[in-house]
C-alpha cells in the first residue's frame, strides 16, 4: 500500500520536470528563442548519452570525482580529529568553538585565489577548497549532535561500568552518528557545487572546465552536459548516503 502511494507521489513529482522540458521545447518550436542560445531538450539528451561513451568526457568526470572524494575524505578526517579533541578536553572544546564560529560564515571560495598562489593550479587547491567547504556543515552538525546527547544515556553506560573515556566511543559517537550523517549530506551537495566552481575558475580538466570550454566556443548543447552530469553525481551520492544511513541507523527514528 505504502509503496504504491510512495511511487504515486514520485510520479506526481515528475510532472513539473516534464512540464519544464515541454515548455522549453515549446519556446524553441514557436521560434521565440533562437536555438543558438537554447538547444532543444532532445539535442541535450542525445549529447549527454553520447558523452557517456566518450573516454575524454569520462576522464573529466573521473577528475571531478577524484577531487570530490579526496576533499570529502580530508574533511571527514578533520571532523574526526576535532570532534575527538572537543569531546575529550574541555579546554580544546572551549578554544575550538569560537574559532569554528568565526570561520564558518567566511565564504571559502574567496580563499581560492590564495590557495592557487600557494599550491599552484593542480588538484591540490581544488581538493583543499572542497575540504574547507565540506568541513563546516559536518562539524557544526557534529557539535550540535554531540552537545545534545542525552545525559541519562551517559549515566546508564557509566553505571554499567564504562569508563568516562569509554563513553566517547561507546555512547557519544553512536548517539551523534545521525547528526554526522545529516551534516555529511549537506556537505556532499556543497562539495559537488564547489568542485565544479573551482574547475570553472581555473582548470584544464573536470566537469566545470568542460562547461567553460563549451561556453567559450558558444557550443550551448555542450554546456548543458556537465550541468546534467554534476546534478546526477550529486543525486547518486546523496542516494548512496541515504542508503548507508538506513543501514547504519536502523534503531533511530526515520528522517524524512
Amino acid at each position: 500500500m505504502r509503496a504504491v502511494a510512495g511511487s504515486l507521489h514520485g510520479l506526481v513529482g515528475l510532472a513539473p520536470i516534464a512540464g519544464l522540458v515541454l515548455a522549453w521545447q515549446v519556446l524553441l518550436t514557436a521560434g521565440w528563442v533562437p536555438s543558438a542560445l537554447l538547444p532543444s531538450p532532445g539535442a541535450v539528451l542525445a549529447r549527454t548519452v553520447a558523452s557517456l561513451g566518450d573516454p575524454a568526457f569520462l576522464g573529466h568526470l573521473a577528475s571531478t570525482l577524484y577531487r570530490l572524494a579526496a576533499g570529502f575524505a580530508i574533511a571527514l578526517a578533520i571532523v574526526f580529529a576535532l570532534g575527538l579533541a572537543g569531546a575529550t578536553s574541555r579546554i580544546a572544546d572551549a578554544a575550538l568553538r569560537p574559532v569554528i564560529r568565526v570561520l564558518a560564515p567566511i565564504p571559502k571560495i574567496a580563499l581560492y585565489p590564495a590557495l592557487i598562489l600557494s599550491l599552484g593550479f593542480d588538484d591540490a587547491p581544488k581538493i583543499i577548497l572542497v575540504a574547507a567547504d565540506a568541513l563546516f556543515p559536518i562539524l557544526l552538525a557534529t557539535y550540535g549532535g554531540a552537545g545534545a546527547v542525552e545525559q541519562k544515556l551517559l549515566w546508564s553506560a557509566r553505571a554499567a561500568g564504562t569508563s568516562r573515556a569509554g563513553t566517547i566511543l561507546k555512547v557519544v559517537l553512536p548517539a551523534t552518528l545521525p547528526s554526522i550523517l545529516t551534516g555529511s549530506r549537506i556537505a556532499l551537495v556543497v562539495a559537488c557545487i564547489v568542485v565544479f566552481l573551482a574547475e570553472m575558475i581555473t582548470s584544464t580538466d573536470g566537469l566545470g572546465y568542460l562547461l567553460v570550454r563549451s561556453g567559450r566556443a558558444f557550443q550551448t548543447v555542450d554546456m548543458f552536459v556537465p550541468l546534467l552530469a554534476i546534478s546526477a553525481v550529486g543525486l547518486a551520492l546523496d542516494g548512496a548516503l541515504a542508503a548507508a544511513r538506513r543501514v547504519l541507523l536502523r534503531g533511530f527514528p526515520e528522517e524524512e
Binding site: M200, G208, L227, I230
Partner: peptide, 11 residues
C-alpha cells in the same frame, strides 16, 4: 540542489 547556481552564469 547539487547544480552550482553560479555555474549557470555563462548560460
Amino acid at each position: 540542489y547539487p547544480v552550482p547556481k553560479a555555474a549557470l552564469m555563462p548560460l
